[in-house]
């Protein structure tokens, strides 16, 4: 049963890693604008092929 020290240790290390990742993402400003990236990712190749007509969903 000594394995419990390892499992608990690992679980806490994983949790702390996610915790640090979250704090970093807040610090870098990822949560300041949560809307624009969702629209931006829908823009793709319009500029390469200007003739191609592409309708994306309307987000007002």
């Amino acid at each position: 049963m000594e394995v419990i020290y390892i499992t608990i240790g690992v679980s806490i290390i994983v949790a702390v890693m996610f915790f640090i990742a979250f704090i970093k993402s807040v610090k870098s400003g990822q949560y300041e604008d949560t809307y624009t990236p969702s629209v931006r990712m829908l823009f793709d190749d319009e500029l390469v092929k200007p003739t191609k007509k592409k309708k994306t969903n309307n987000n007002q």
Binding site: E46, L47, P50, K53, T56
Partner: peptide, 10 residues
């Protein structure tokens, strides 16, 4: 400037 896709989104 071939930016007329502007009118395609909305």
């Amino acid at each position: 400037s071939e930016l007329n896709c502007y009118y395609d989104f909305e």
